[in-house]
Amino acid sequence: MRNVLVLVVLAGLMAALSSMALAANSDTITVNYEVQAINELAITDAAVTLTVSAATAGSQPNAVTASTTYDITTNETKKITAVLDTAMPANTTLTLNAAAPTGGTSAGAVTLTNVAADVVTGISEVAEAGKSLTFGLSATVSAGVVAAASKTCTLTVTN
């Protein structure tokens, strides 16, 4: 009789347990998000004008500067290079001093030629606007009178 009672109790416990939490079932969906490389740079002004027109007697002509700004967004590690479409006339020098975004390093005033040169390095995962670009123009008396002309300076976000 005692054994029967134990068995009945066990059976009751089994029934209770089985009704409280029936087998769960699952299904799955997948979420895929592709983040592409993003490297965007925009210069505020379409052009800057530099005119060498004055000097102190006994000295080379006064150098001049003109400024604009640039905006940059990158989700990678990059640098900015600058290059002119054609070389400057003899005895004239064009420089660019580009401010670095947070974490980057400016190369200071870099002489611009028709060969790309680093102006900012070590740029990493940043989105900043209004970084200064300061162009400088200098000429020696040996340049003579140089007629007004245009150069295209291209800034590139690159590896």
């Binding site: 699952s26 299904d27 799955t28 969906i29 997948t30 979420v31 895929n32 998000y33 592709e34 983040v35 592409q36 490389a37 993003i38 989700n75 990678e76 995962e125």
Partner: peptide, 11 residues
């Protein structure tokens, strides 16, 4: 960083 991020939602 650029990559494809993937996870599964289990209901």
């Amino acid at each position: 960083a650029p990559a494809t991020y993937s996870t599964s939602l289990i209901f």
